[in-house]
């Protein structure tokens, strides 16, 4: 099947088998390898991308379902050579170690901050509870999201 979709504002087309998982289209076909795979059962969130602005697990969607849709992956966070405040936050607060869950965490965090500009710690923890991290113990991921929230608020106030 022919699939047309937009990823990070760029149009892509591919001929795919209906059973091709969206994550494999993104990684193996379109070679955007920042999106990862960590489980088989929709638990880990390493494959999180934004579908029409909402974070979803791209291992639990067929590529054909994304036909005509607009996606965003970790590669789309940096704009014109400028890192997104979340990316800055993850570096500043040591919100990543091995980096494997990080793209998923970033995408979830990005969508979350769009709706919750002044989140509490508990709200952040719930928001990222579909993304597993084995390295950081989450404390610094929470701080990284808070860090980004503060930067974004400052930016909005200016």
């Amino acid at each position: 099947m022919r699939v047309q979709l937009s990823i990070n504002g760029e149009k892509h087309e591919a001929d795919v088998e209906p059973r091709l998982l969206l994550v494999h289209l993104i990684r193996d076909v379109l070679r955007l390898t920042g999106t990862h795979i960590g489980c088989d059962t929709t638990h880990c969130g390493a494959c999180t991308v934004l579908l029409e602005g909402r974070p979803v697990k791209s291992c639990t969607m067929f590529a054909v379902q994304a036909n005509g849709k607009s996606l965003m992956t970790v590669e789309g966070l940096e704009q014109d050579g400028k890192l997104h405040p979340l990316q800055e936050g993850f570096m500043a607060e040591h919100g990543l170690q091995c980096g494997y869950c990080t793209p998923g965490m970033l995408m979830t965090g990005y969508a979350f901050l769009g709706k919750h500009p002044t989140p509490t710690e508990d709200e952040i923890r719930v928001a990222i509870s579909g993304n597993l991290c084995r390295c950081t113990g989450y404390v610094n991921i929470v701080k990284a999201v808070q860090h980004a929230a503060a930067t974004l608020r400052e930016g909005a106030a200016r």
Partner: peptide, 9 residues
Amino acid sequence: IADPLVRNL
């Protein structure tokens, strides 16, 4: 139900 990402679909 499940987790917040699953609930988006």
